[in-house]
């Protein structure tokens, strides 16, 4: 639950609600960008950014290289799988 996983913002799906599509280990999921959109900037400025995702919310921006590294390590260790499974099963 408290495990943050890195992903990359690939598109904005709802600018008003500040929702975007984040790609996490090949899975895409709609995530709130409300905490990482800079004040007075459009949500579109987040596209391409690497973010740390917690329970459906991007909580921090991370450097791209750092994100790749963290993700690769986590993926290898199966950690991401648990979060992805929760993501896929959500609401069922």
């Amino acid at each position: 639950m408290c495990l943050g996983i890195p992903g990359r913002v690939v598109a904005i799906t709802d600018a008003e609600r500040r929702l975007g599509l984040v790609e996490i280990a090949g899975t895409r999921r709609e995530v709130s960008l409300a905490c990482v959109v800079e004040p007075d900037r459009a949500p579109e400025t987040c596209v391409g950014a690497w973010v740390l995702v917690h329970v459906g919310f991007a909580l921090a921006r991370i450097g791209e290289e750092e994100a790749r590294a963290t993700l690769a390590v986590l993926e290898e260790l199966g950690e991401v799988q648990e979060e992805l499974a929760a993501m896929r099963a959500s609401g069922s």
């Binding site: 329970v55 919310f57 929760a86 993501m87 609401g91």
Partner: peptide, 27 residues
Amino acid sequence: RMVYSPLDALAIARRHPDREVVFFGLG
């Protein structure tokens, strides 16, 4: 129902206006 995000709980509330949806806020 297990959810990954409170936003998913809110989506369930949208889909079921006739039901009371409670989210267990934790952490």
